[in-house]
Each structure stands twice: as structure tokens, then as C-alpha cells.
Simulated assay, not measured.
Amino acid sequence: MTNTLISASELNAILDNNVFIFDCRFDLFNPDVGFNQYQSEHIPNAHYLHLNNDLSGQIASENGRHPLPKPEQFAALVASYGITPDSTVVVYDDKNHCYASRAWWMLHALGYTKTVVLNGGFSNWKQQGFTTNSEIPEPPEKQKISSQKPINWQLPTASVEKVKTAQSQDSFFLIDARENQRFIGEVEPIDPYAGHIPGAINKTWLDVIDSEGFFKSKEFLADYWSFLQEKDSDSVHYCGSGVTACVNILSIIIAGHKPPALYSGGWSQWCGINPKKPIKS
């Protein structure tokens, strides 16, 4: 186990060791599906984190479909479970890692660096024959954090202004994690119009996950992202709303690079503040 991934067998071995587990299964087109799946069957002692309600902030005008919550808001939720920076936290979804990676990013960005993603997800956990149940742990009591210091995200984030900088400077890569059909503007199932942010390149999150739902090897990922190191460049990563971009970011860290910046507003925010003709390849 590293500070990125844990296997099903490794998790099973420490299941009774006061590990905190969060089920993050979700469906963008049916927001109730993930919680219904969780209620039916989950890894023992797992709590549930809902993308819309727990892993996102309040949607306001032109801030994207899944804006990050205020750091102190998410910090209060995490603290209410009794989690400390020394706690081992495991997050999982089904097998695509989109929602677990978002939770992983947010927890690491608050300093909970012993958070790991279950590689292969819930699907592999079941395939391995490990225990599941439908018992729902007691929900935590919501708490406020009293701190004299402001709470900030400790991993890099990108504002719209930084994205515009990345568009115009050779020292930045602006990387779109969405499927290629959405990037080139052939389809857009969710957002107002199709296309991508001018200047972006497409490195889809699907490239870093294999057909069985595991992150590809460190060697593959190091080669896949080697262009970042070759130019010693910074990169800004986005997707539709800051979810699948976290899969790419996690894979970059697995590959041995420093954490890049997340533009969580993504294409959904860009459409709102730039209602112009779609950019197509």
C-alpha cells in the first residue's frame, strides 16, 4: 500500500484495524443509483460519500456542475467521522475510479495523506470473494471546526485566470480528461455545447485505466506522462466538472510526478462564462 492505491487483499487484511472506508459509487445521470447500491451491499463499515451532496459545493451562477465545496465545509464533514491526519482512509467506487479519485484528491488536499483508492473498486472486491453487507454505520454528527488559521486546499488548483494563462504560455499544458468524442465536439451529453477549451490537448482518463478497472502500471503511466517531465512543465487538468480529471491527476502522482493543478470548474464552467461558438478539432 502506498499513499495512492490499495489492493482488495491488502484492504481485507486491515479491515478490522480502525480503517475508515468510504463508498463513492455514483451515476451522473441518476444521482440516486450509487446510494441505492450502497444501501443494498457495500464493504463492511463503509460510509457513503455522495458526489453532489458531500464532494461538491453549492452550485451558483457560472461555477460548473460540481464545484469544490469550501475547504472548511469538507473538513468539518471529515472531522465528524473522527478522522485525523494519521488515519488510514480508503475510498472506492465501482471500478472506474472517477468518484473515488475525486474523494482522494479532496482528502489529500486537506492533509489526509494516508488516503488511498481501492484499485479495481467494489467489482474486484466482490470478485475476490471478500465480505460485503448491507449494515449502515451510524452517520456522524455534523461539526464545525474551530481554527484560528484559515483552511485551504493544499493541492494545486486552477482558477479561470490560470487556465487563460495556460492557454498562452508554452510552460503550461492544459489537459482535457474527457472522452475524445466530447473533446473534438462530436457529442456532448451533459453540458450546454460541445467542444473544448482553446489550447487544450486531450489525454482521456480512460487511457490510464485497464479493461478490468485497475490503474495501469507505474511504468506505463511514467511513459504516458513523460512529456510533462521532458519539458519540466506545469499542467492544468480539467474535464466536465472536476471529476474524471482527478483520475488523471492520481495517475500522474502514481507515475512519480508532482501534483498538477485541478481546474474543477471544467468545461461546464467554461461554457457558462464563455457562451461562444464551440471549439472543435
Rank of each mutant, 00 (worst) to 15 (best):
M106R: 00
L118W: 08
G120C: 05
N124T: 12
K95W: 11
F122H: 07
L110F: 03
T132G: 09
S123P: 00
E135P: 03
E135Q: 14
W105V: 06
G129Q: 11
K126P: 06
S101I: 05
Y112T: 08
T131E: 14
V117F: 02
G129V: 11
L107S: 05
Q128A: 15
K114M: 00
N133C: 12
V116D: 00
Q128N: 13
L107R: 07
E135W: 12
A103E: 10
A103Q: 08
L118Q: 05
W125L: 06
H97P: 07
F130E: 10
H97L: 12
A100G: 03
S134T: 13
W104A: 02
S101Y: 06
I136T: 13
M106N: 00
T131L: 14
G121Q: 02
I136P: 09
S134K: 14
H108V: 07
G111H: 05
L110E: 00
R102E: 05
W125Y: 09
Q128G: 03
K95R: 15
T113H: 12
A109C: 04
F122G: 07
K114G: 00
Y112K: 03
Q128E: 14
L107M: 14
A103S: 13
N133D: 15
G120P: 05
V117E: 08
E135I: 15
N96R: 15
S134W: 11
G129L: 12
K95D: 14
G111A: 07
N133W: 09
G129T: 13
T115R: 07
F122Q: 04
N119R: 03
G120N: 08
Q127Y: 09
R102T: 07
L118N: 06
A103N: 05
N133H: 11
K126D: 06
T115M: 06
T132N: 10
I136G: 13
W104R: 00
F130R: 06
M106P: 02
